[in-house]
Design a protein around this nucleic acid. Structure first.
Lengths: 345, 345
DNA sequence: CTGAAAGCGCTAACAA
DNA sequence: TTGTTAGCGCTTTCAG
């Protein structure tokens, strides 16, 4: 029995089966009956292909068909569970639609993001799912205009004709704020993510609206922070608690922000939830394991990815962008022990 | 100024510059001086390419050069921070070596893993980095034998000729055990991961060896669990604590295992670290945020990925596998509050 | 210094 | 029912 070569090509199979390459191609692509190939030859071809360990070259096929079956994903930080979870659901959905995903990590840099997108289009990805760094969108709009279906996830752009998927930040934040307000809190510090990005801005909007409903104006001095990181949360919370000891609660825009705030509170002798309540807009699953379980606005992260994947798949199939551009995925408020009634002053 | 088409091809550029495609190709690939192309024509070609927004088709180039610049990564669960962190460092390293990474999630199934690897090789990836499910390796060995450089990460196979990267499980575990033993613990429960996988088995070996050094034989009845998950940790710890109340400490093989154990301990009224000490072999960064900071054997996860990437890059470059097959990456013991002296009985 | 032509592996008219 | 052929876009001999 001849050793199965790894590099056997279609013409090898054809020669071995003593047919032309077209016949071989047809037989192997399930077009046997369409072309009324005798079942004996069809079977022969399949046998020979099997024997030679024939694997059609996707590269050649891509060149010929102008379809690569490749999807590009760009995220700012794959070590962040929020983004890796999105990457996972996009990857898995794409897989089930017959696509493979090329993954790229922009490291939070717009320049790198742009460079990666260029590389990916040069590789003829059929569509892109991008969690943008979120501050500039020109390169994204232009690649879409050049014909590559492109869906934005998470950091969207407010009034834009691009197809976008994100959580319902404003509503989720309002729910969280209502929880605080319902427990008597009015002096609420806000630990902000990256100002200027839609998630951060919409959440801030939610804060304002929720306060407005009970006749309170958000004091800008109670808003601090500029990253979704632990450090940003820690520093901001520390500053706020020292400069505004009247604060009775924090709304944190990310789990790391909240972890940082918790640490700062501990160090300043404020107990959670007795002396300080804490809610966060969530991006990871571990909030449950904090010293005090952390009340959370939970995003449906897998759904963000799934929806994005199905939107690009649809665009590839139909050749045109869907009518609905902005997709808001619902969030869920998880009431947990980190929120308490405001303590009598 | 003519609108830059997205689909312009090399021959478009050539026609526009009134040169042959070969000249155009050479000019654009920095072969101008090698072929002594007049700098004027070279510049002209570059200008026209720029004007047309020419992007060379990587597909066509791959077909011609038989080099795709593609790397395949397969992990069992991308939503697990351990694996996403590996995926990240592999992706980023590969990127800096001029490769793009196709990412695939096997969902912990050997069959899917095998199927994905076949798909990836059909796409002509130049090498594979696989975090295998860890129970069967035949398909991995055979793809490597068919000529695709392949590096295994984490779940390795003990005596195998494959190139492998994993943490130094045994040494790390011994350090953790010495911490417990040094604090007087002798009745130590072991919360096991997936038995039969190398990480799990090597850690168990480390437990045995550390105990042996102080003249204690590991009681098999104190070993329980079969997954690296929270649930496995919870159930096993619960069983062990109920059936063996003499246990004063747990060695958990993963952070989720430890979280589960912590929960079980709480429910059974055992405080950490007063009534029960807890150390874990770590795979995520959040152990710090547990109610009681968790003593941890920290793996250098990014290094696992980086090393794997550089090993495949080297194989691609040299065409042959490196001489050293098994690479053990050092780990670090982080002593934290979850370990205390054994309480007087 | 530049061009013509072959060919990577595959699919799909078009022919027979 | 099967074969012939052109060509996807690129690189690279080989021939000027």
């Amino acid at each position: 029995m001849p050793k199965a070569r790894s590099g056997s090509t279609l013409s090898d199979v054809a020669r071995e089966a003593k047919v032309s390459v077209s016949t071989a191609s047809r037989a192997l692509n399930g077009l046997a009956e369409k072309y009324r190939i005798s079942s004996s030859t069809a079977q022969l071809v399949r046998d020979k292909a099997e024997k030679l360990g024939f694997r059609p070259s996707q590269v050649a096929r891509s060149l010929r068909l102008k379809r690569t079956g490749l999807l590009g994903i760009v995220v700012p930080d794959l070590s962040n569970p929020f983004f890796s979870s999105i990457a996972q659901s996009v990857t898995v959905s794409a897989e089930s639609d017959g696509f493979s995903a090329i993954l790229a990590d922009s490291g939070g840099s717009v320049e790198k993001e742009q460079k990666l997108i260029e590389q990916l289009t040069a590789r003829s990805v059929e569509a892109l799912v991008v969690c943008p760094v979120g501050l500039k969108f020109a390169h994204l709009e232009s690649t879409r205009e050049q014909g590559t279906p492109l869906v934005l996830v998470d950091r969207c752009k407010d009034k834009s004709s691009m197809v976008q998927v994100t959580s319902d930040h404003t509503t989720g934040t309002q729910q969280a704020m209502q929880l605080l307000i319902g427990n008597g809190h009015r002096k609420i510090g806000v630990l902000q993510g990256i100002a200027g990005t839609l998630p951060s801005d919409q959440r801030l909007l939610g804060v304002k609206e929720a306060l407005a409903k009970v006749g309170v104006n958000l004091d800008p001095a109670l808003v601090e922070g500029n990253q979704f990181t632990y450090e940003s949360g820690y520093q901001s919370a520390r500053n706020l608690l020292m400069n505004h000891p009247e604060i009775t609660a924090f709304f944190a825009m990310s789990t790391p922000n909240a972890f940082g705030a918790y640490q700062a509170a501990m160090e300043l002798g404020r107990r959670v939830p007795e002396d300080l309540s804490l809610v966060c807009f969530d991006d990871v699953k571990f909030a449950n394991f904090m010293q005090v379980p952390l009340a959370t606005v939970a995003q449906d992260v897998p759904e963000l990815g799934r929806l994005a994947a199905s939107l690009v798949a649809e665009q590839i199939r139909s050749g045109k962008a869907p009518v609905q551009k902005m997709h808001k995925v619902p969030v869920t408020l998880l009431t947990r022990a980190s929120v308490g009634k405001v303590s009598p002053s």
